[in-house]
């Protein structure tokens, strides 16, 4: 019985495109990856003015990779991930604002991550009975409600202005970059490991054909629930980091549905289900939006430009641009498959 189970899931998982690292990495892929990693780690050295932008991109890489482990793998598209990270950020902010402004980060940080996991489970539990589209709609609406709640309870949340009692990590952008880079690298590595493990393969198989996974005797609900936990923990870490990054927690930067859509767009451009693709696309997206388009088009028109670029990429390359490049590099070697 159990033997046939594994063979079914492994087959479905391997039949799915060419996910990063599921195959042997060839010389070209390894080379490009190494160059990119080294350039990322040395950003404050070769481009000090960009350190702040890339520090922010580190956090978005965490978000995109975390979204990917559940939604990118299972195809249950969550529009509610800004709710998870927002829950963590608001926990940090509410504790410092309403309880004790000097509360230590080693207390607020773990608490925030726990709240994020609880928040994720609150909307994961009804999802256990829903098929894909209903799930997406419910998560979308839950973000709207959470945003509304911030304004209803503005005595505690300070409404649109937000809470600015959160301590800023550091004002040295070089240090800020490394403070965010280390968690980003660790989280991406851990998620990549989960993605390649049996759990990741089952999650991908659910995305391919949930009925078949169920028929093979696996409890898909349990796997989806674990997927959510694996996603919510790093989302919580990222959300709390973002709170300490800005020092001010307000709905627009942390909660509104636009932020969720950005996470999804980044993951889709990078290549859903590949972890590294979404993480890498975060740097591309933020660099284009906050550096290139901002310089050429100004702070408002850049949004039109970035969303138009995303739309074109989605239509032309639904598999994801970075995933496509990776496959291209993989084929250069000749025999990698």
């Amino acid at each position: 019985m159990s033997k046939s189970v594994t063979s079914v899931t492994e087959e479905s998982a391997y039949g799915y495109g060419i996910p990063l690292f599921d195959t042997r990495v060839n010389l070209y892929q390894g080379g490009v990856l190494a160059v990119l990693l080294v350039s990322l780690v040395t950003v404050p050295v070769w481009a000090p003015p960009w350190a702040y932008l890339f520090a922010l991109a580190n956090i978005w890489a965490i978000f995109a990779a975390s979204w990917d482990i559940i939604s990118g793998h299972t195809n249950y598209i969550s529009f509610g991930h800004s709710f998870i990270s927002g829950a963590a950020a608001y926990t940090t902010a509410l504790l410092t604002f309403n309880v004790n402004p000097d509360m230590a980060i080693y207390i607020t940080f773990p608490l925030s991550v726990i709240v994020a996991v609880v928040a994720a489970l609150v909307f994961a539990l009804p999802s256990l009975r829903l098929s894909g589209p209903y799930f997406s709609l419910l998560t979308f609406v839950s973000v709207l409600v959470a945003t509304k709640a911030v304004f209803i309870f503005s005595t505690y949340t300070n409404g649109e202005m937000g809470i600015s009692t959160v301590s800023v990590l550091t004002f040295d952008t070089t240090m800020l970059f490394y403070y965010t880079l280390v968690p980003a690298v660790i989280i991406t590595g851990a998620l990549l490991y989960i993605s390649r493990s049996n759990v990741g393969k089952v999650l991908k198989a659910i995305g391919q054909n949930e009925a078949a996974v169920e028929a093979a005797g696996l409890d898909t609900t349990r796997f989806k629930l674990w997927g959510f936990v694996y996603s919510a923990i790093p989302m919580g870490i990222g959300g709390a980091l973002l709170a300490h990054f800005y020092g001010n927690v307000e709905p627009i930067a942390f909660l509104i549905v636009d932020r969720s859509i950005e996470i999804i767009a980044i993951a889709a451009v990078g290549g859903m289900g590949t972890i590294l693709g979404p993480a890498g696309a975060a740097y591309l997206f933020l660099f284009l939006r906050d550096e290139v388009f901002k310089a050429f088009l100004g702070p408002n028109a850049r949004w039109v430009a970035i969303w138009s670029v995303v739309l074109v990429l989605l239509v032309l390359s639904p598999q994801g641009v970075l995933k496509r490049l990776w496959t291209f590099l993989g084929n250069l070697g000749g025999d990698s498959s």
Partner: peptide, 27 residues
């Protein structure tokens, strides 16, 4: 018409269209 067979991409593309319209109107 070109993407409707792919549920996920249709989701994303239509919401991105909404965001583009929002940004154009904001401008």
């Amino acid at each position: 018409r070109y993407i409707e067979h792919n549920v996920v991409i249709t989701f994303l593309a239509t919401v991105v269209v909404a965001l583009i319209i929002q940004q154009l109107l904001t401008l």
